[in-house]
């Protein structure tokens, strides 16, 4: 992690839908190569904030830059420099492993040669060479998920947004998935991750917890546990979430 370089800068982000305030004055910064956990109960406003950071929706007010690009004016460049993966894995089931890689590499403008070279490296690394021409639908869930993550960072983004990437996956596979995340972070990719699993929150460098559209806590897991006098992140989360009113 390089604390001198801030790849996400958010200052006074507000997002309103009519009378409802989904994001109430959020401010935070994320360093290059940091694993940043973005936690909150359903309805706390996480998804709204992620959409804004990904350039999918405009904030009502606030100064926000992602990978050095302004979310109001430089969406195109912003989108080129981020990756995204949701809990739905986002690979096409009726395409083969390689076709998926080629498609996603293609829409990020990578050349044919680069796609072929990187695809070979990737399949070797994941030990999936034998599955290169198999349809995604025939792969086990854990492989799909690893592959989806690798595809999300295939174009070497500055930041990758992971929206509950490990939903519905067994603990062993989750552990392996986090190994991939660590490796990507060591390679300088910033990880912005939301999760419902509090053990995963412990893996993050820093964690923010949102309640009712506001960030109520933001620090390293160790510091948070100390502040809230809690044994684990679960207790920290529950202590904060109990104060919420906007629960779905």
């Amino acid at each position: 992690m390089n604390k001198d370089v801030k790849v996400i800068k958010v200052k006074n982000l507000c997002k309103k839908f009519g009378d409802f305030t989904a994001n109430n004055n959020l401010s935070f910064e994320v360093s290059k190569g940091e694993i940043f956990g973005f936690l909150g109960a359903n309805g706390a406003g996480k998804t709204t904030a992620i959409k804004i950071l990904c350039g999918l929706s405009y904030p009502t007010s606030g100064e926000i830059s992602v990978a050095g690009f302004d979310v109001y004016k430089q969406r195109e460049q912003l989108k080129r420099n981020i990756g995204y993966m949701s809990q739905k894995f986002s690979l096409y089931e009726d395409l083969t492993v390689f076709e998926n890689i080629r498609f996603y590499g293609g829409i990020y403008g990578l050349s044919k040669e680069v796609i072929h070279r990187k695809a070979d490296d990737l399949l070797k690394k994941l030990d999936l060479q034998h599955a290169r021409n198999k349809r995604i639908s025939s792969l086990p869930l854990g492989w799909k998920q690893k592959l989806a993550f690798s595809v999300a960072i295939f174009h070497n983004p500055e930041i990758v947004f992971l929206d509950e990437p490990t939903g519905g996956v067994d603990p062993v596979t989750r552990r392996q998935f986090w190994d991939l995340i660590y490796e990507a972070a060591r390679g300088g990719i910033t990880i912005f991750v939301t999760t419902h699993y509090m053990d995963e929150a412990e893996y993050c460098d820093r964690v923010s917890i949102m309640v009712d559209g506001k960030i109520e806590a933001l620090d390293t897991p160790a510091k948070l546990k100390e502040d809230f006098n809690a044994g684990d992140m679960d207790q920290v989360f529950l202590a904060l979430a109990r104060t919420a009113t906007n629960v779905e």
Binding site: C54, L56, S86, K88, S90, I107, G109
Partner: peptide, 14 residues
């Protein structure tokens, strides 16, 4: 439904 639309929208494709 599959969530791939989100990925496409997040990508540089307009």
């Amino acid at each position: 439904e599959l969530g791939t639309m989100e990925i496409l929208l997040v990508s540089p494709l307009n």
